[in-house]
Design a protein around this nucleic acid. Structure first.
Lengths: 362, 362
DNA sequence: AAAGAGTATTGAGTCGGTTCAACTGGGCGG
DNA sequence: CCGCCCAGTTGAACCGACTCAATACTCTTT
């Protein structure tokens, strides 16, 4: 019977990345000793320590993180599923998340769901199969199927919902106070004298779109303004729907409009252009979300700025707390948006000139 | 002597993801059979096949891709290192890369180097340690150190350089024809009558910045225009440097300026604003790179559009060719940019109105 | 000097897959 | 009726790390 001769790699093989066994052999110690030196776990005498270091350096050894992950049952990798990284809303969030992850020794796998249920499902499965330690999820409106729930439960990977809640999912959530944002926007428009205020919402099966709409209605009420369904349009947060919104709403001659994201504002403006209506002369506009380059827009947009970097940063922070078991109860972090008054809302009392934010790196 | 009883997991353990051994036990077959069924490799009788399928379904088994990767020596993961995903130049590229990768069964690990040599080095090491199958690299200008070279060589992971070449690195490259782009821009400005044409370059230790500058000089020459160093400014592709460029160049009263990326154009415009100079009345401007929302800029920017999506798509295509061993010789793919004439360059002969691109999803 | 305490070091099992060599049993030709 | 071939199936080595239990070695202590 052949004795078990594990690890008898022949020397004459083509150059492959050295393993911990190669290092052990080179340093004439056991693999444990090498492992202990590398991870600074366990006591190792200075002599052996130096021998190991030397061998590591000589062989240019680099631990195989796959093997490490398999053995330790953790990958130090986070999955991040957003609807579309090419939507300018997400890059800053992803950047923040990656920064925070990197700082804590984690990497980020990026996925684009396109807001499609099936793509999302595929990515979630993939991420779990890759055994990521946690997932940041900008959830599709579709509820999770039973098997997905089961899958997510069985995999111990914690999840943080980003900007969108999901009924029945008891996970951490990071979001902006969208209701308040909308209220602030409408309040400003109302205060400077606008009466007929139109509203372009996101898809109403998305939680934040509903919250913004709620804020809109609430604020109208608070200011004694009439709610007119004809001044309302449900878009999908993309350019084209903003364009359709413009074509649909502007003929009704609203005094002003609140468009609930940047891309739809872009479409809305182009529609106004086509129709021949000008902002802010013919209608005032407030948009959600702010960017460093908006200083070059004309008119300069009055916006509800969303703290994107903080969103991504917080998402990772919450995830790490869960991963490290520091917290077992789900929390919801709601960040405050901020009104930035510029020209597009109309009725500028003081023609204040706000230069573009200079020094921004994004 | 205790017989070796591998895989004797007790049943009473807390629920963990089932392994291939659990499935084998459940189906009363060997692990090989399970593996064969799952991967459709090797012949398995219909009976056993069904038994395995049933067990897989019953246990909700999902293969551990870590283990698979370790065994197969391939991770089906690509690393992507960009300077900064929050720079609007990159999202579309990353999106394209992720699309292409996903289609081929690969995932993307995203890294931001901030154009810092040390961050890049850390990420490269990390990616190799994670044994990614290939790397898309928007390289820092700094040359690779000797140990890095060795590292990259030893790891068999192919690399595709994105938008930036690196002397001495014989890898695939995907880039735009930056020299031609600059030539087209200057040619257009010259043809419509501008004489004193200023130039805001990127950091000249970056290959594409040099190429754009080359095109600038070449085109000036071709049109018999004088090259004036005072009309030249070296920026770093970020907003702030564009702002400085504006403050430095505009007082020299150029007829027009070519700004070689979007962020610097934003900064440049804000500088013009501060100084009180207007575009295109006081100076014409052409910018590199185009976005769906530029229709809302005033003036509407004349740009050199860079095929971002195609860049990312091509990068992954090249990488996969290498990974699959279909090609062993490095290639360079150079994509053509395209001049989009709008208002900012000045002297509009026909006041053509170009509406914002509608229907874009980005 | 022997026993005990404590530390350095090793051997070997383990994570969850892949895969090859070897074994089994049924069908078939000679 | 025997032996061969082959499809189906299995056992076990292996990928490259971690880590526990056991051993070897110091150094005290009495």
């Amino acid at each position: 019977m052949p004795k078990k001769v594990r690890r008898t790699r022949m020397a004459g093989r083509v150059s492959k990345a050295p393993s911990i066994y190669d290092v052990a052999r080179e340093a004439k110690v056991s693999v444990f000793t090498v492992s202990a030196v590398i991870n600074k776990t366990g006591r190792v005498s200075a002599t052996l320590g130096r021998r190991v270091e030397a061998a590591v350096h000589k062989l240019n050894y680099r631990p195989n993180l796959l093997a490490r992950s398999l053995a330790k049952q953790q990958t130090h990798t986070l999955g991040m599923v957003v609807t579309d990284i090419a939507n300018p809303f997400f890059p800053a969030i992803v950047r923040a998340a990656e920064d925070a992850a990197q700082k804590a020794g984690y990497s980020v796998l990026l996925c684009n769901s396109d807001d499609k249920q099936d793509k999302e499902a595929v990515y979630l499965e993939l991420l779990l199969s890759k055994r990521v330690d946690g997932i940041i999820l900008n959830k599709t409106p579709a509820p999770l199927s039973v098997v997905q729930r089961r899958m997510l439960d069985e995999a111990k990977a914690p999840i943080v919902l980003l900007m969108r809640t999901c009924p029945g999912l008891k996970t951490d959530v990071v979001q902006t106070d969208d209701r308040q944002g909308a209220i602030d926007a409408i309040a400003h428009l109302a205060r400077i004298g606008h009466k007929r205020i139109a509203f372009v919402s996101g898809p109403l099966n998305v939680s934040n779109a509903r919250a913004r709409r709620q804020g809109y209605r609430k604020a109208l009420e608070a200011f004694g303004l009439e709610y007119d369904p004809e001044l309302t349009f449900e878009g999908d947060y993309r350019i084209e729907s903003g364009h359709r919104a413009g074509l649909a709403l502007l003929p009704h001659r609203p005094d002003a409009v609140l468009v609930t994201n940047y891309l739809m504002t872009v479409g809305f403006m182009s529609a106004a252009d086509e129709i021949g209506m000008r902002c802010p002369e013919d209608f005032g506009l407030v948009s959600f979300d702010d960017y460093p380059w908006l200083g070059c827009f004309r008119p300069r947009l009055t916006t509800i700025e969303l703290p994107k970097y903080e969103l991504g940063d917080t998402a990772v922070r919450l995830l790490l707390e869960r991963i490290q078991g520091k917290r077992t109860h789900p929390v919801t972090v709601t960040l405050l948006p901020q009104l930035r008054v510029r020209e597009s809302c109309g009725f500028m009392l003081h023609s204040r000139r706000e230069p573009v934010a200079v020094g921004e790196n994004s």
